[in-house]
């Protein structure tokens, strides 16, 4: 399996990430953009847990991300202004928000699952938009970045390293989880749910756990994000944001540990640099999505694997196709594929 961590690759990533606060200013970019990359990568990883490993086409993770963002901001504003507790509260809130909608989602698969995640994601969006007294509605919610310890403020560079530490922690956790029996079960479901069910696995239950884990990741990313930009606002939960997260996963490589990071880097840096250069940057981003889907559907990290650079005719047909685990879900080109 591809999960065997590539030591060289991982060290290279670690070096780049550690050096980023010096690289970015040299490239005429601000340090907090690096923080955004990390947090988008963490949110994209939350999608990857569902999409890349469990084979679920989740299109609503921005909701969990946004819940985390609001929860940490509200905690910092109304209770203890301290960074770690605020982030912890956001993480848990993100997880709970996933657990809350989980029962509605777990019985459906395929595009039905996508549709439900979009719809329930919008529920959270509307709550944020309408609950003025709590969230500030469309004007958003301003939060002062709380100190880490004592009364010392955290500047953008320090916050980058704080986010990096948490990001690293979560990637290690993800790595271990994916190699644990639990993670293997998820991947078994991703490769062939029917087979997993015949083996006596209560797949719905595992899907629920995967959602919970995904909510925890997304919530943590969101919690850190509102602490990074010192603001929370409803658009964070919009389905377009969810779509962006999914796209980051696919850009980088579905079902690969570092794919989301690669995708988030391309997406966030690309959007930032392009939007400084042209007003038509959204068209360029859209075109990037289209090109990625048509030309390198396995993402950048998938390019070098097995079939080399050749455009795969059909991921759906390649039962053993790595790294896209969900490809093996038994998809046929047409008709009802709802396993539920």
């Amino acid at each position: 399996m591809r999960l065997r961590a590539n030591a060289v690759g991982t060290s290279l990533i670690a070096i780049v990430l550690l050096a980023l606060p010096w690289l970015l200013p040299a490239a005429k970019l601000n340090i907090s953009l690096g923080t955004t990359v990390l947090l988008f990568a963490l949110a994209a990883s939350s999608v990857n847990i569902l999409l890349g490993y469990t084979g679920l086409m989740a299109f609503g993770n921005a909701a969990f991300f946004g819940v985390g963002a609001y929860a940490s901001a509200l905690f910092a504003i109304h209770t203890v202004p301290s960074l770690l507790p605020a982030v912890a509260v956001g993480s848990i809130a993100g997880m709970l928000s996933a657990m809350l909608v989980g029962p509605f989602l777990i019985r459906r698969r395929g595009i039905y699952f996508s549709l439900l995640t979009i719809a329930f994601g919008q529920v959270y969006y509307f709550v944020a938009y309408r609950w003025n007294d709590m969230t500030g509605g469309e004007d958003g919610l301003t939060v002062q970045r709380p100190p880490l310890a004592a009364a010392k403020g955290v500047d953008d560079a320090q916050f980058y390293f704080f986010a990096l530490a948490i990001f690293a922690l979560f990637m290690v956790v993800l790595w271990y989880v994916l190699r644990s029996p639990f993670g293997l079960t998820l991947r078994a479901i991703g490769q062939n749910e029917v087979r997993a069910r015949y083996l006596g696995i209560d797949t719905n239950r595992f899907v629920y756990f995967a959602l919970t884990l995904s909510g925890l990741f997304a919530g943590t990313a969101g919690a850190l994000y509102s602490m990074s930009i010192n603001f929370a606002y409803p658009l964070l939960m919009d389905w377009h944001q969810s779509g962006d997260f999914v796209m980051m996963v696919v850009l980088g490589g579905t079902g690969t540990l570092w794919g989301p990071l690669v995708g988030a880097t391309i997406y966030a840096l690309g959007a930032n640099v392009l939007s400084s250069a042209t007003e038509a940057w959204q068209i360029a981003i859209g075109a990037l999505f289209v090109a990625c889907v048509l030309l390198f559907p396995r993402g950048l990290l998938g390019l070098g694997s097995r079939s080399g650079g050749a455009a795969p005719q059909s991921l759906a047909m390649e039962a053993g196709a790595e790294p896209v685990a969900l490809a093996a879900q038994g998809y046929e080109p047409v008709a009802q594929r709802d396993l539920g």
């Binding site: 086409m57 999505f289 879900q329």
Partner: peptide, 24 residues
């Protein structure tokens, strides 16, 4: 071109197209 792939790709493709369309 995507009918033989999992539906995720056509979903993302149309997502990209909608971004292009809106800005156009």
């Amino acid at each position: 071109r995507l009918y033989k792939r999992i539906p995720l790709y056509s979903l993302l493709l149309t997502f990209g197209l909608s971004l292009i369309a809106e800005e156009s």
